[in-house]
Simulated assay, not measured.
Amino acid sequence: MDNIAGLASTIGNRFATNLRGSFTNMTLEQGIRLVIIAGAYMLLRPYLVKLGMRAQMQSHEEEEARAEAEHKAKISANELRGKVSIPDDTDDEDEATAEASGPDWGKKARRRQRDMIKKLLEAEEQRLRENQEELEDKDIEEFLVKE
């Protein structure tokens, strides 16, 4: 224990002596250089910190975008097929349902969402009908005699 106390005392004495000696033996040129370096550090440090924060933010945003893209890529269109359901036309605000899974939408928002889903489903059905008609036309053309 005595050895550790002596070591700490020696380190403290050497530090104080060397620090005092550094400032007493300093020339005017060395003093000006020290002031310039310390002043430049104090002036530039906030800008360097902001630059570092900006670079870190960009890397976080890139990482988040990459993770989001991976998450979206995991769900394919085939997995979503047949899972779309049209909400009922119940616009009664008095009915309280215990299984509310989404946000509490207003009456107009629910109606707009329901109409949008219906339009999307009708457009998909129309596209499928047109494809079916094209296939039927091709089948009929096979049987027509071309002269």
Rank of each mutant, 00 (worst) to 15 (best):
E61S: 01
E61Q: 04
K118V: 13
N78T: 01
A40K: 07
I37D: 04
R114A: 03
I11A: 13
A77E: 12
K138A: 15
L51R: 15
E61L: 04
T17H: 06
N131E: 15
S59N: 09
A40P: 04
K72Q: 12
H71Q: 02
T90I: 13
L121P: 03
E79A: 09
L43A: 08
M42E: 10
E122V: 04
E134Q: 07
S9M: 02
S85E: 10
L144Q: 14
Q126S: 05
I75F: 01
L120I: 03
A8M: 11
R114P: 02
E134W: 05
V35R: 12
A40W: 02
E130D: 07
T10H: 00
Q56R: 03
D94A: 13
T24S: 14
L80S: 09
R114W: 01
L135I: 00
A123M: 10
V145R: 15
A123N: 00
S22P: 01
K138T: 04
I86Y: 00
G12Q: 08
E95P: 11
L48K: 07
H60F: 14
A96F: 04
S85M: 14
Q30P: 01
R14T: 03
Q132F: 04
K107S: 13
E95V: 13
E64M: 13
F23C: 00
V145Y: 09
H60G: 05
A77S: 06
K50N: 03
L44H: 05
V145M: 10
E95A: 13
I4D: 09
S76T: 07
